[in-house]
Design a protein around this nucleic acid. Structure first.
Lengths: 297, 297
DNA sequence: TATCCTTACGGAATTCGTAAGCATG
DNA sequence: CATGCTTACGAATTCCGTAAGGATA
């Protein structure tokens, strides 16, 4: 048994039991993988895959169990490398963060600026995606940290920390009828075409729930994953926007006006996630402390 | 990085950083180990050992950390094999138990007899040693289960379960002056030469404490690790014996008489231990249930 | 001088990629 | 017949054991 076999097994499972695809991902040949899987089965004395003809159709019960343990072996092996790197070059390396657009664009810059002062030699790697993709990236070890408002705490393999609390805010074009209103209720808002986040993003579900609770069914004319896109279309007059507070800046967004809301929209919590059991290097611990607002020293 | 390197590292540490000794234990050559350690250091980018000249004198700080993780990698790798074996031959394999003499001789027989009825094809491997050795064997993975009254719950890497509670009892030769006494106090007992377990065994510490609490200092003329040895010398008239209740059987020990004690001796708890995180095969879970008296089904 | 780690080198075993075979839908 | 796993085989790599070297107490 060796690590390569376990990596191959893991990748094969991740690729839906497609050896050819897994072989590509691992930069090796497909017959090599085929042999490794067979040898692993021989060594463990267990059939890992249900085969229909020569295709792998699903994992056997034993296979499911083995894969789960193999993941742990590989995770700990990764920790070995991380521990080595931490001692070898204490303050060098790469901080790898996966985040949704809003986090990457509005929250992370000031945190990363601070981080950069403390660790100028650490390179930053920022992966962007949907909350679900962020969760996957962290769970797979493609990123050490994940940041999003959604999805993260639904993954049992992730450990999450509250990063900051935020609410949605209403923005309208400067020339809009609502621009001069001191504040509006949700019922008034529901009468206007709405532009906000896609359902899987940034607390959208809670937003819908808040309207539904009052029996309102706003017309969402445009959904986007990206606060900047939303603001652009709001400015163009497509509708009124509901975006994360942090994404509105009067100075940067002169064509938009923020309007107060009479009914409080539900609070959202952006969370930082790591994979359970992952060993955090020194600078990674510091980043976690920065994001969660906890002092390290 | 491969498993062999990690096994070599673990064994080197266990052997007090003596490569030559570790090489023997692993049935390989010493230069092979030397190379593996150096290559592991190269790959992790870290010095694992403090070297004085060419000898390894201690682990570096990084080394300590790496070794701890390597142990986890190897433990999970072992779980892989165990999971495989469990599915491959569900009710075959080896039940590996380390125990002190008293457990092996008096408690385990009836449990193993029951176990054997349920799993006739499982082979039994019984390792005997001092409580400390039992703990080591389990911690090192040389045995899956450990059973003893002492030591086990002082090891953080072990998980322990109460197996049964017992007290010491007093046995004397049939012709002894105390043989006809209905029961005796500790003060009377302390006036006689005593034969009992060695300090590291079978609740001996609590026994001493019980005497000390009453200001008594009995003369222990013979210490043994083994109830049968104690009984033999008691029968020969060397002194009176304090042994585990379970080790006295009037039918088997006709030359001995059990005498009641007026003062209750402290209760001891024999514990069953497994290494934390170890995957228990089906029959091992059943054994655990048998020993702890919990039903499985 | 005895112990113990390191280096060097030749042979054995493992691993990989290419090419060809074969089963399913 | 397109996709996808298996088998076969030669080449490259890796790994190991023996032998010799060097450092410490």
């Amino acid at each position: 048994m060796n690590f390569q076999q376990l990596r191959s097994l893991r990748e094969t499972v991740r690729r839906g039991l497609n050896l050819t695809s897994a072989a590509e991902a691992l930069h090796t040949s497909q017959p090599a993988l085929s042999k490794q899987m067979r040898e692993l089965e021989d060594e463990l004395g267990v059939t890992l895959f249900v085969r229909h003809g020569k295709k792998y159709t699903q994992l056997t019960e034993a296979g499911e169990r083995i894969v789960a343990i193999a993941e742990r072996v590989l995770a700990e092996a990764d920790n070995l490398k991380r521990a080595g790197a931490d001692h070898a070059g204490g303050e060098t390396g790469t901080l790898s963060v996966a985040a949704t657009h809003t986090q990457a664009r509005y929250l992370l810059p000031k945190l990363l600026a601070q981080f950069r002062i403390e660790y100028p030699k650490v390179r930053l790697s920022l992966h962007q995606g949907s909350p679900e993709q962020v969760a996957q990236m962290v769970a797979h070890g493609d990123a050490v940290f994940g940041m999003a408002t959604e999805s993260l705490d639904r993954h049992p393999s992730l450990e999450t920390f509250a990063a900051y609390r935020w609410r949605h805010c209403l923005v309208v074009p400067a020339a809009h009828a609502l621009a001069s209103a001191g504040s509006v209720g949700l019922d008034v808002l529901a009468a206007h075409p709405l532009i906000t986040y896609s359902p899987e993003f940034a607390g959208r579900r809670r937003l819908d729930a808040a309207f539904a609770q009052r029996g309102l069914r706003p017309e969402v004319v445009l959904e986007a994953i990206d606060s900047d896109v939303i603001k652009t279309y709001v400015a163009l007059g497509f509708g009124v926007g509901l975006i994360a507070e942090i994404a509105y800046d009067p100075a940067r967004d002169p064509e938009l006006v923020r309007v107060g809301l009479e009914d409080a929209l539900p609070e959202n919590v952006a969370r930082l996630a790591t994979r359970r059991g992952v060993l955090l290097r020194g600078f990674e611990q510091r980043f976690l402390a920065l994001v969660t607002g906890v002092a390290t020293d």
